[in-house]
Design a binder for these strands. Structure first.
Length: 686
RNA sequence: GCCGGGAUGGCGGAAUUGGUAGACGCAGCGGACUCAAAAUCCGCCGCCGCGAGGUGUGGGGGUUCGAGUCCCCCUCCCGGCACCA
């Protein structure tokens, strides 16, 4: 619930729940007389409604049928080998050329009894579903392209709704309604539609005329009756291989013994420690070359044995480190006998988790998964690790660089460089302070040591103080957003806090009398501005938009500084009230200066104990309001009216305004008047 | 390719349910103070135009009295795609 919607959708897509039908094509294909997979080629499909349009099957390179066919077909064996060497990266699979090869084998269609050829396809994944798919070229874009490439038959089994009956075909003659007709040469979007408003099953015997849902139900039922299939839920989620051939992961505590096999490292020999003087050189796992690490003796039989050198995926550790933090206690320190103890249930789940958006799927999904496993093992009693999640945007900064004589690239830190502006203030380039010569500044990227574009918040704190650093970071941008760093705004934040300080000290000498029931003029305006700004700021706090809360405090100071200091205007009362609101609103953003001023002005001892300010409705009311006047939706002027003026009177008054009359003179007449209370009047002239 | 997010002045960003686009700040320009500079204070500041006015929220279309906001199509940028973490 406390998670951003977009992270939840990304995870849902990643888990990839998919409802469909699992069914089998039958066959009598044998390897050395042994029937393969009991004579069944299982496939999974979300489009069982198109089952009568199957013209071939495609299996993964690792599928048993492919392996068998390759035994007697060297060309196919070579193709399978090529597929195996291809990337398993999803991005590569999606963009690579779809290729395939006929196995020469056929299987029997479970409903029609027809013989269907079996192909090997490089786009079929052994790890998803059954490692085999039915192919319906007429109604799947990928199968369509594949069938065209290899000249395989295309059989239409879905018809556009408008063409469904013979009668409607005369109403939609092909010459005029080309787009509604199926054409084996050209893919059209509706071929793959599931919508009953667009398409119905066709050319499929008893299933003709059914919608997607009805056809899937009917076909699943018939397959079930034959014992050849049923509805099934499939997941995109794959198994998690946790071992890595890398040095820096957590060691896997296993010892390989020639006699005893894989033996776990006994408890009293844990933890297995990695050598600390290992230098990765990019050529595989450096642990494999460390005889001192690898050689050990078998805990069971004592003979010489080899230690496992694979380490665990770092996601393993990051999936539950927080639970371990919650296991430490002040009295005993970290519990060294158990993974977690009862303390964990007290502290977990994490109230507020903060991390970059790049973790939206992997780390956050693994952590949730891991928590649920620990819950199932009764190690913990919660099932979600993070109650609320804030996904930060990345912070980018300019990359200043220059080509060196030797052809390399030299990077410069922001403080070594000065920006060059044109007469409008637009940045046109940058030059190095040391020699005044230009440097390239086009690049923008995440902060990194090698590119020297990082900014250490400590340097801001050293120069301006913690309050300014905090204020600036809150003010710059909403946290979820990608931020292009610029420290030019820091000065402004610092200036603002200095003004707050100066204003507070000027005010500390003033004494205030009680505010009268009704203010007028300048002090009333200032007070309204402050309370209206407060109302908005409280709303923004609620929805966690802190940059506008920071700007609200600036607006309040602007209003206070405009207060006229007339003797009889009660300005001191308005100022003291307004400044107390400002301080409290600012206190979470700039805690130190606000606490000091709070005390010095005698508002109280501790600003953290003070009640959060609430706007006073009576301060917000105005006797007169300004209404914007639009003609045909375009801004043409404004008028000031009494707050209580009713709608007919507003309409009447608006029409008489010169800015409206101007448009009536040309002969138009008023067609309609729209009044938005307290905002505007729109006069439609036609 | 698929999934998710985004595009508003010179810059960072505001705009609650469709209702005055550009709040607040930065940079820039002009002025005051100063021998001078810094600091501070006052004013100007989307674009085109002397002006009236026109135009403007990535591009094209639509709905509406009225669109940054809603609908359709497109472009570009960023994140993720399971061995970077």
């Amino acid at each position: 619930p406390g998670w951003p919607e977009r992270v939840k959708t990304m995870q849902a897509n990643w888990i990839g729940k998919s409802v469909g039908v699992r069914f089998a094509f039958t066959h009598d294909i044998r390897d050395n007389g042994q029937l393969i997979d009991d004579g069944k080629l299982w496939v999974f499909t979300t489009r069982a409604d198109t089952i009568m349009g199957v013209t071939f099957c495609a299996v993964a390179a690792e599928h048993p049928l492919a392996t068998l066919a390759a035994k007697s077909n060297p060309e196919l064996a070579a193709f399978i080998e090529k597929c195996r060497q291809g990337s398993v990266m999803e991005a590569d699979i999606a963009t690579m050329e779809k290729e395939g090869m006929d196995t020469g084998l056929t299987v029997t269609h479970p409903l029609t009894g027809e013989q269907v050829p079996v192909w090997v396809g490089n786009y079929v994944l052994m790890t998803y579903g059954e490692g085999a798919v039915m192919a319906v070229p007429a109604h799947d874009e990928r199968d369509f392209a594949f069938a065209q490439k290899y000249k395989l038959p295309i059989k239409q089994v879905i018809q556009h709704v408008n063409l469904y009956t013979a009668e409607s075909k005369t109403r939609f003659p092909k010459s005029d309604y080309e787009h509604l007709y199926f054409d084996t040469a050209l893919w059209k979007e509706w071929y793959a539609s599931k919508s009953a408003d667009e398409v119905l099953v066709f050319n499929s015997g008893k299933y003709d005329g059914l919608s997607y849902e009805d056809a899937v139900d009917a076909i699943a039922a018939d397959l079930k009756a034959k014992g050849l299939g049923d509805k099934q839920i499939n997941w995109r989620l794959r198994d998690w291989g946790v071992s890595r051939q890398r040095y820096w992961g957590c060691p896997i505590p296993i010892i390989h013994c020639d006699t005893c096999g894989d033996v776990p490292v006994p408890d009293d020999q844990l933890p297995v420690k990695l050598p600390e003087d290992c230098v990765p050189d990019g050529s595989g796992n450096p642990l494999n070359r460390r005889e001192d690490f690898i050689n050990c003796s078998c805990p069971k039989c004592g003979k010489p044995a080899k230690r496992e050198t694979d380490t665990m995926d770092t996601f393993v550790d990051s999936s539950w480190y927080y639970a371990r933090y919650a296991t430490s206690t002040a009295a005993s320190g970290f519990n060294s006998d158990a993974m977690v103890d009862a303390e964990t249930n007290h502290w977990m789940p994490v109230d507020q988790y903060i991390g970059g958006i790049e973790h939206a799927i992997l780390h956050l999904l693994y952590s949730r998964f891991w928590s649920k496993v620990m819950r199932d093992l009764s190690l913990v009693n919660y099932d979600e690790p993070f109650a609320n999640l804030l996904t930060q945007g990345m912070v980018l900064n300019h990359i200043f660089s220059r080509r060196t004589d030797k052809g390399g690239i030299e990077y410069f830190a922001p403080e070594e460089v000065e920006l060059v502006h044109d007469e409008h203030g637009k940045v046109t380039g940058a030059k190095l302070l040391a020699d005044g010569q230009p440097v390239d500044f086009q690049g923008m990227g995440t902060m990194s040591k090698s590119k020297r574009n990082g900014v250490d918040p400590q340097s801001l704190i050293d120069q301006y103080g913690a309050d300014t650093a905090r204020f600036f970071m809150m003010f710059a941008a909403p946290p979820e957003q990608t931020l292009e760093w610029s420290d030019s705004g820091v000065e402004g934040s610092h200036r603002f806090l200095k003004r707050v300080w100066a204003y507070g000290h000027a005010l500390s000498g003033e004494t205030a009398s009680e505010l009268p029931a009704k203010l007028a003029g300048n002090p009333a305006n200032a007070r309204r501005e402050i309370h209206a700004t407060l109302k908005q700021a409280n709303y923004d706090l609620d929805r966690q938009q802190f940059n506008t809360v920071a700007s609200a405090t600036m607006k309040m100071l602007n209003a206070l500084e405009k207060l006229q200091k007339d003797a009889e205007s009660h300005w001191q009362g308005v100022a003291r009230e307004g400044f107390s609101i400002l301080l409290r609103l600012l206190s979470p953003i700039a805690p130190h200066i606000t606490q000091t001023l709070w005390r010095e002005l005698g508002y109280g001892d501790d600003i953290l104990q003070a009640a959060w300010p609430q706007p006073e409705e009576s301060a917000l009311v105005q006797d007169e309001i300004e209404l914007v006047i639009q003609v045909n939706g375009k801004l043409r002027g404004s008028m000031t009216v009494a707050r209580t003026l009713d709608k007919p009177a507003i309409e009447q008054l608006a029409v008489t305004q010169p800015c409206v009359q101007k448009y009536l003179e040309d002969g138009g007449s008023v067609r309609k008047i729209i009044v938005v209370p307290n905002k505007l009047v729109n006069i439609v002239i036609g």
